[in-house]
Write a protein that binds this DNA or RNA. Structure first.
Length: 300
DNA sequence: TCACAGGGGTAGT
DNA sequence: ACTACCCCTGTG
């Protein structure tokens, strides 16, 4: 480490170690499932719901976390997911998928708070990851609540009532564009009780019904709904198809064909990748976006 | 410096 | 199927 010139060195935050296996913090937080974690002192800071947390992975088997947050962190990061068992269900004759898994074997699908996840993905349409993150932070700053702790002040994701009260006009100031109306209207549905997100994690509600419920919300179509069911509902059989995955699937599995409809890709994903295809999607997506060998576009 | 295209889709036709 | 939608960011 060269001596830091003027700005004061970031004060080290207190941590306790927890043991991890097959876990990659950076890949997990930077694989497009969550957008509010910020780099801090070779680690990340952010909120798990309302709990401020500093996370830092020092080696493949050790994760440093803010004291007292161990249980919340383990649950949020889904450290209990058995990745060996999950990847064992993947097709064994698929070198492309194997390459994507080998690229970031410790990538995990985390358990996000439902509303925060839904709202964030409503704002994600036709946006680049950097911009989604920017919008997310702006909304927190403007309409969330500050949380003070040892580290830099963080802001909670605003409650549905706060965004509903703000209204589309005010939300617009966070550069949401046409998404402001969707977000305000969905926030209103939830604040008024006309939509209750508790079905997301309710095992008695089928995937089919959960998808239908979610799509009642304005700004929520098949792609956003699949993301929420996967990232907040822990329904690992959902397979969101965005432009990246669409390109990837066409390139890898439909090279010869032109004009492959999305429905055909979805059907292929269902039968080819198996019950944990949500994980397969995440591995393929992360590989396509961050490895140098992306198919068409080459912009990380 | 400043157009200009193109973004992790959705809803209305 | 086909478009409009808001507007930021990256490129030339």
């Amino acid at each position: 480490m060269p001596p830091t010139p003027h700005p004061a060195p970031t004060p080290a935050l207190p941590t306790v170690p927890i043991a991890v296996r097959r876990f990659d913090l950076a890949a997990t937080l930077d694989s497009g499932q969550v957008f509010h974690w910020r780099r801090f002192d070779d680690g990340f800071i952010g909120l798990i719901d309302r709990t401020p947390v500093f996370l830092k992975q020092v080696d493949p088997t050790r994760l440093l976390v803010t004291p007292g947050t161990e249980t919340a962190v383990a649950h949020y990061l889904a450290l209990d997911h058995d990745l060996e068992a999950i990847t064992a269900t993947f097709p064994q004759n698929d070198p492309s998928l194997a390459r994507a898994v080998a690229y970031a074997p410790g990538l995990r699908l985390i358990r996000q708070p439902a509303w925060e996840c839904l709202a964030t993905f409503i704002t994600s349409s036709l946006k680049q990851v950097a911009h989604i993150s920017q919008i997310s932070h702006a909304l927190r700053q403007q309409f969330g609540q500050p949380v003070t702790w040892d580290g830099p002040t963080l802001h909670t994701y605003p409650e549905p009532a706060a965004l509903a009260a703000a209204g589309a006009r005010l939300l617009q100031e966070c550069r949401l564009g046409y998404r402001a109306r969707y977000l305000a209207d969905t926030a209103d549905m939830i604040a008024s009780g006309s939509l209750n997100l508790s079905f997301l994690n309710d095992p008695t509600v089928s995937d089919h019904d959960a998808l239908a419920h979610l799509q009642r919300a304005p700004g929520v179509g098949p792609k956003v709904a699949a993301c929420v069911l996967l990232f907040a509902g822990e329904r690992l059989g959902f397979f969101p198809i965005d432009v990246w995955i669409e390109r990837t699937l066409k390139e890898l599995y439909f090279k010869q064909e032109t004009h492959v409809p999305t429905e055909k890709l979805a059907a292929f994903a269902r039968q080819h990748f198996g019950p944990y295809r949500g994980y397969a999607q995440q591995f393929l997506f992360h590989y396509a976006r961050t490895s140098a060998a992306t198919p068409h576009k080459r912009r990380p």
